[in-house]
Design a protein around this nucleic acid. Structure first.
Lengths: 319, 319
DNA sequence: TTGTAAGCGTTATCAG
DNA sequence: CTGATAACGCTTACAA
């Protein structure tokens, strides 16, 4: 593996001149620069990242640390982040599990976007206070060098449920996500508030965990009941899809007998039968906004607030 | 940000002793070690990755460079890789786009797994010959320091189609993936060979691109025809799902009027109606095998062949 | 058991 | 415009 020393020698210049030339600094004779580039080309030289980063005290890498690699909404957010970072010559590094912590602690990233509830608030605060700025997604956390960006889950659900009540629905059920999921809880708050404001005093509740399977199981329970709800709000699209499957199998008409909706607007929702009514935000755009904020932060600009992604209701065939 | 120097000073030892202690080398007095760890703890010290990597000439990072962050099979492969790497104290770094090339060139990874057709053979060969071992997935590439791991697409499809012929199907159609997709081409080869070996001389062909949408469009065309095929083999599950949707909307019974199948065994296939017959390999396991091979490679062991992931037929309701 | 010092491959300061 | 040279923060002979 050639180093800058080899390049310099081949070009017949000093190491520092080689460095200047390769980094496009102005103070280099065009002729010299050409020789250096030629040498680099011939040797197939690329700078060693570790050395460069050590010296410059920054890596140009932004870490995105997520809980797992699956999940349809992750991919869109990641794509948005990637796009914006690439536009600004930053590298995106996505990781998960123990690697996340390692990369963060060893400062192999200049900043970190956290989409992983497994990393504790305490740890995040520690990393942030030691110099790596952090943006947490879908989670509330304050502190020096820490920023957070959350969807307005509660507000969106509130609006939507309100709309459904106006449409004539009264008997609601909620299929929940995991109890420790921030976004599930916010969605549930919005749901309850909407009912309360219209004096609807009770509703059914089914515990799920955001998976298709759990929605399916909730469906099975609903089918068994005498007092079936007229409208089931599912905390995310996956559970709604599971629910649809259960109702389909039992030949219960959607939306006539039971109407329902999800949250997230995943790609698939348009391709099932009936097409899923849902609430969605533009995740790619969200990713872009987050990346934009991160770029500002790591380049020393002050960032007050990260622009909130706006949501939208997609009324399709399930209600 | 504290450095090892600060830790050493605080513990009242030399830098090297601090280093020895922190790295669990045996030649340190227990008492001294304790003091060093205490100091590190109090200062909240973590070693600087760039410095460490520079000195050790390895990073402990394995890069996984993919085309995009979406795709249901990616996530499983990634999960398998992550799991195995973590078990062996390597970090996983997933990236995409320009970042991939940067990280590779600057040697911020000790090895790279490539799942991205956009990076050319030529470039890969160059990186590999410059010291970073490379494993390409679902792609054929040879050279020093380059390894490849491919599914037996052709063989699996051959077996499956054969089975369908035995079941009595004669009029086949193929819904293709992108023409430049290695796995699509392999699958098509297997498909054609199975027909040929049974003296079935022709079949219909629909060009698609692995998306639900393209499968849906193929379905629309099929519906229009007088001579509809009896069995449609879709190059992947997504296109099969699109096809199912089109047939469902046209009230064409699956599998009685038209049978079909996909490839990949994505999660969703079990949750649509009718449940999708497909061919799948265990992607998590595949990821694990690949990671295992990579670990062997970067730790200097010779690796002859990467274990081939075995496939399985999931016969469900669409045929 | 501990300390000194060289060096990993860069960048950047300072003289020339 | 170019070249010595001192860091960056760590590991690791080698010496003590």
């Amino acid at each position: 593996m050639p180093t800058i020393k080899d390049v310099a020698k081949k070009a017949g210049v000093s190491i520092s001149t080689a460095s200047y030339a390769l980094n496009h600094l102005p103070n280099v004779h065009p002729e010299t620069r050409k020789r250096v580039f030629l040498a680099a080309e011939e040797l197939n030289y690329y700078p060693n990242g570790s050395a460069k980063n050590l010296k410059k005290r920054k890596t140009g890498n932004i870490g995105v640390f997520i809980y797992g690699f699956s999940g349809p909404i992750f991919s869109d957010v990641l794509e948005g982040i990637r796009h914006k970072l690439q536009e600004n010559n930053y590298n995106i590094i996505v990781s998960s599990g123990k690697s996340s912590t390692n990369l963060l602690q060893e400062r192999q990233v200049d900043g970190a976007v956290i989409f992983d509830a497994e990393i504790t608030d305490l740890d995040l605060s520690a990393y942030a206070s030691h110099g790596v700025p952090i943006i947490v997604l879908d989670r509330k956390l304050e502190g020096p060098n820490i920023y957070s960006s959350v969807i307005e889950n509660d507000k969106l659900v509130y609006q939507f449920v309100n709309q459904m009540i106006k449409k004539g629905y009264h008997d609601f059920a909620y299929v929940s996500g995991p109890l420790d999921a921030f976004n599930n809880n916010q969605r549930y708050e919005g749901f309850k508030k909407a009912l309360k404001d219209k004096n609807i005093t009770n509703h059914q509740y089914y515990q799920g965990d955001f998976t298709i399977q759990s929605g399916y199981e909730a469906g099975l329970e609903i089918i068994k009941r005498k007092d079936r709800p007229k409208f089931v709000f599912c905390a995310n699209d996956e559970s709604a899809i599971g629910l649809i499957q259960a109702l389909n199998e039992a030949n219960i008409n959607i939306p006539d007998e039971i109407a329902l909706s999800g949250f997230d607007n995943i790609y698939l929702g348009q391709y099932i039968k009936p097409k899923l009514t849902t609430i969605g935000i533009n995740h790619i755009l969200w990713g872009e906004k987050v990346a934009e904020a991160m770029i500002n932060i790591v380049s020393g600009h002050t960032v007050e607030k990260i622009e909130k992604p706006v949501g939208e209701i997609y009324e399709r065939e399930t209600c």
